[in-house]
Simulated scan of single mutants.
Amino acid sequence: MKTQAKKIIVVGQIVSTELYGLGRGVVCSINGEQSQYGQDTNVNGVIRQGGGNAKFDIAFFNGERSRFIPECILRSAQWSIHEEVATVDAVKMAIEYTDVITEKKAEEEKLERERFSQEKERVKNLPEYKLLQTDDLGAKGVAINIRKELKAAHPKVKFSVRKRDYDCVYIGWTDGPTEKQVREITDKYKYGRFDAMQDMYEDNSSPFNEVFGGAKYVLTERARSDALIKKALEIALEKYGCELITEECNVEAYHKGKLNNFRCDFFYHGLSHEIHIIAQNLVL
């Protein structure tokens, strides 16, 4: 049961919050005095709730530990101060449990650092990467390394690999390998991703990035020649027949956008979209 925000908080007080998935916990230490115990004050006709000067250490039942939480935070709407007060022994057990969890996490982090270091050494000595440079790990160096890998994998294709802005590499080419085939090489150079749900970029550097470099954004764009579009139209004709793919469905009509809304009664997004789908997986 939630208690009144004005009530004095004591060691053993059960509190809870939904922030960061912390849940319920117990106050295990109080530093400083609780000014007016959160009493409301009238300032020029405006009622304000006093924050207090005390700071609290809280041991959460999920094993997390928060230290020096200001009284104004603990008494805010995002926290609940419950009526229950744990015994001294219960508080001690909660503290010991958080200590165990902290030590366990520290050990896991140490092991992860060791695994990361071992993987860096393994990747560095792989024969397929022996031509890659390791001295320039920024976007410029990434562009150089990508260019080397693409040239080795697809020697007959001319790629344009350029650094864009501060931390972006752009790769462009015509026909040749599909975007999926190129990304099998280039994706490992991205050291993070943009999380649209949280509207933020998440860094996640890999051992490969630590050795051969990485960039926030590695963009690919495959251009399609007239020959590739013509081949895609021929495949569409073979698949759907001349009743749907008529004589007016040609390369020129595709480029002029005349096929964008062509036979939308059959092709949900128009014939141009269907040609795009065929072409993106087509290699001449």
Rank of each mutant, 00 (worst) to 15 (best):
N145I: 14
A232H: 03
Y170W: 14
Q280N: 11
Q49W: 06
N62C: 15
N44Y: 14
D40M: 11
A196V: 14
M1G: 09
I229K: 05
G38E: 00
D265Y: 09
A59H: 10
E202Y: 15
F262K: 03
K188C: 07
D199W: 12
I14M: 06
S205Y: 05
T246L: 03
D203T: 11
K230A: 08
E128A: 15
C242I: 08
I69W: 02
H154P: 03
E64Y: 14
E64D: 07
S76D: 05
I95V: 12
R224H: 10
S160A: 07
R183I: 00
A227V: 15
L131K: 09
E234M: 14
N209V: 02
M197L: 11
E64N: 07
K104E: 11
E238P: 04
K55D: 01
I47W: 09
G213M: 03
V283K: 07
L244D: 01
Q49M: 09
N44R: 11
E96L: 03
T3H: 05
N125S: 10
A94F: 09
G52H: 01
L237K: 13
F60Y: 13
G141F: 00
S117L: 02
W79P: 02
H154F: 10
K124T: 06
I171D: 00
K230R: 04
A227T: 08
I9Y: 01
Q78C: 00
L244P: 02
Y97S: 13
E103P: 00
Y240K: 05
Q4V: 12
I8N: 08
E210W: 03
T178E: 07
D165T: 04
A86T: 12
C264A: 10
T98L: 13
F60D: 00
A54L: 14
V15I: 15
V27K: 01
C72A: 12
V85D: 14
L22M: 12
K239V: 13
K258F: 09
F68R: 15
G32Y: 02
M200I: 14
A5C: 07
K148T: 11
A236R: 00
R122D: 10
T134N: 01
R67M: 13
